[in-house]
């Protein structure tokens, strides 16, 4: 059941991205930026939470989920530590993803060379 929900929720979020790409000429970079920002906003006003509860990985793996984690982490830290939490919370909550991307990015660059497309 988890899997079916993850498939449908995750697929739908990607489908929205595809519609934006085909119909509005938004470049992939702009899609990523808007999806993360949308995730932050939807997370902050409490709309993304129920989507995560329903879709689990289907909602956390796509980039709005990254934004949702940023918002959720920030709010949690503000509650705990006050204003400084606005600066510490977001990155703490997403630290694994960011550090992994930087580290593995570097590692792959050492190991592999780009290949020409055919």
């Amino acid at each position: 059941m988890d899997y079916l929900r993850a498939f449908i929720v995750g697929g739908t979020i990607c489908l929205i991205g595809q519609i934006l790409m085909d119909k509005t000429n938004l470049t992939p970079a702009r899609i990523l930026v808007s999806f993360v920002t949308a995730g932050v906003i939807l997370g902050a006003i409490g709309i993304y939470e129920p989507i995560v509860e329903y879709g689990k990985a289907g909602a956390t793996v796509p980039l709005p989920g990254f934004g949702y984690s940023l918002a959720k982490g920030t709010i949690k830290e503000v509650e705990k530590y006050g204003l400084i939490g606005a600066f510490t919370g977001g990155i703490k909550a997403t630290s694994a993803g960011i550090a992994a991307a930087i580290f593995f990015g570097y590692l792959m660059a050492i190991i592999f060379n780009p290949k020409a497309k055919s």
């Binding site: 790409m21 992939p28 780009p114 290949k115 020409a116 497309k117």
Partner: peptide, 18 residues
Amino acid sequence: HFCSAERQFRFPLEHGNQ
């Protein structure tokens, strides 16, 4: 050259764009 033009004007080769 496809590869040199692509990286200068568009995206890195391994980037998964359409």
